[in-house]
Design a protein around this nucleic acid. Sequence first.
DNA 1: TCAAAAGTGTTAAGTTTACACCCATGA
DNA 2: TCATGGGTGTAAACTTAACACTTTTGA
Lengths: 225, 225
Amino acid sequence: MNNYYSHHPKFYVGIDCIIFGFNDGELNLLLLKRNFQPAMGEWSLMGGFTQENESTDDAAKRVLHDLTGLDNVYMEQVGAFGEVSRDPGERVVSIAYYALINIDEYDRKLVQQHNAFWVNVNELPPLIFDHSIMVEKARKLMQQKASTKPIGFNLLPKLFTLSQLQSLYEAIYGEEIDKRNFRKRVAEMDYIEKTEKIDKQGSKRGAALYQFNNKAYRKDPKFKL
Amino acid sequence: MNNYYSHHPKFYVGIDCIIFGFNDGELNLLLLKRNFQPAMGEWSLMGGFTQENESTDDAAKRVLHDLTGLDNVYMEQVGAFGEVSRDPGERVVSIAYYALINIDEYDRKLVQQHNAFWVNVNELPPLIFDHSIMVEKARKLMQQKASTKPIGFNLLPKLFTLSQLQSLYEAIYGEEIDKRNFRKRVAEMDYIEKTEKIDKQGSKRGAALYQFNNKAYRKDPKFKL
DNA sequence: TCAAAAGTGTTAAGTTTACACCCATGA
DNA sequence: TCATGGGTGTAAACTTAACACTTTTGA
């Protein structure tokens, strides 16, 4: 074993997760009201530390799994946060990831144990350390990605109505979308497939349920949604 | 001092720099033909390690300065690279940054000492570890950024001709641009200012020299270039 | 019967693309 | 005088944005 690097210092490599969920027309984040030290009682992202035997991507998956019980979740790295005193207790270089989860599927017991709550992205409390900066960067990145890749479907159930899809994108972009223009665009995307099923919850009349067909998408040279 | 984290492992936090330069219509990277261990003799990015007293952003600036002698350079973080065996010798979590430098201004002696060379981005040799992946990600990110923010000017001298500007963007996007459409767009951007000066190097006739006015830009609600 | 969400096309405005010739100059 | 890069405008194609009414049905 060489030791070319041994005169350099080592650091904790933290992981912080910005967990997006969508419910009732609102984009939410899953945040901890910390019932542990440090910064007990304050709001923060779910976090953890990279271990010897795992990549940082795997660490992020583990941290997400520990809170939600979920695997195979869509995650993207937001970036590394390396200010010297970002964590006032110890030097920690943290890597932030965002995750898009289907709000129907997570493990509610685990979330309760961690004292975690869904909070509307437009009504976030102050967060510890640089977590608010991480959230801002994650939102921009996710918004950007959602405008060119079909990642939004990760936030919806397998079957969804066009109204749900529209209100999701309105929440992501933070602006209203014209219903007819929206539906016209969706109609051109043959990887968004109308099913025979009808949703009766959302309205008296009932709305057609659609599904995202990932195979059909991959062949498509265009993007958007 | 608390020790909430003390049961977690620590890691080297590496820094790797993707250094872009533009010369004679070509987009180039400044790469090391390594004259030191590990991986002596192979090609790599310029790198270093985060120290106790510096943020990762500062470490990146230092690493860039050590090679080029330059300060106040445009840099952006590309992301963290945390695969367990990405460096086969030791566990290193590395953070990649890209930099845009004016190819006229760097310190040639320092570059020579480091055995570094400008290599066309389209003719890159194999690089050590995951450096080729870093480069790919940096190129995409830079291209993306260049399409919405006026970062390209960092790669040009203060005064430049429209032909230079066009060939720069052709190199960044990897595709040809129509001359008349390009100039029409530039004419609409009042933060790209025509000067009285004339360049006589590039052509017999001479071409008007332009400059980027950053103050004019900041007021402008539009973007592009 | 009425409130509430579902569903449906057309036109105008704006943006993007394609395209060809004359100009000035140094060699 | 001619080869080289500098400089210039218009029309067609395409994309985006604006806009209002009818349908269904459960309460």
